[in-house]
């Protein structure tokens, strides 16, 4: 690893898209904030009514748009505000994760968890863990990008080519 690479990894701050369900995980994030628990500012939160609302295509699109990682969090199984939305979501996410890892996306970028409204501290821990995982695998180069090039340069290069 040369010096430039080391520097890039040291300063690399991933952009992680977080889909949080309104009733549990968003409230957990809120609780983490009002309890003044520190966690890395790398997540960009999208509040959704239920984890069952999250179309797997949204997550694929997030990677297409250059997100370094994705975190999805909903209510624990059995605690869904809409009875069973997260049960349907669970199967979808398992399939999606298998698909993405099979297509060559690093497993560390695709993160799913359950987090209840009282677990503010745990939510902060999850975010720390996810940020560490994504930092470990480095910046996302896009579906078109091999190692060694940034997402945007690679896209620009390919725009005129194939």
């Amino acid at each position: 690893m040369n010096q430039a690479d080391t520097k890039q990894i040291d300063t690399f701050e991933p952009k992680i898209l977080a889909f949080l369900c309104n009733w549990c995980s968003y409230a957990a994030a809120d609780l983490a904030g009002s309890s003044r628990i520190q966690y890395p500012p790398n997540i960009r939160v999208i509040r959704v009514p239920c984890s069952g609302r999250i179309d797997p295509l949204l997550i694929i699109k997030a990677f297409n748009s250059g997100a370094d990682g994705v975190l999805v969090s909903g209510c624990h199984p059995g605690d869904c505000h809409y009875t069973d939305g997260n049960m349907y979501a669970r199967r979808r996410f398992v399939m999606l994760k298998e698909l993405l890892t099979f297509a060559g996306v690093e497993e560390e970028r695709v993160n799913f968890t359950w987090c209840s409204a009282s677990e503010g501290k745990r939510f902060a821990g999850i975010v720390r863990e996810v940020v560490d995982r994504v930092k470990k695998v480095g910046p996302w180069k896009g579906f078109a990008g091999p190692a060694g090039q940034g997402f945007l340069e690679r896209e620009g290069e390919l725009a005129g080519g194939k």
């Binding site: 199967r91 996410f93 398992v94 994760k97 993160n111 799913f112 968890t113 359950w114 999850i126 863990e129």
Partner: peptide
């Protein structure tokens, strides 16, 4: 249902 790969 199994949930392989979920964070706990």
């Amino acid at each position: 249902d199994p949930q392989p790969g979920f964070l706990d």
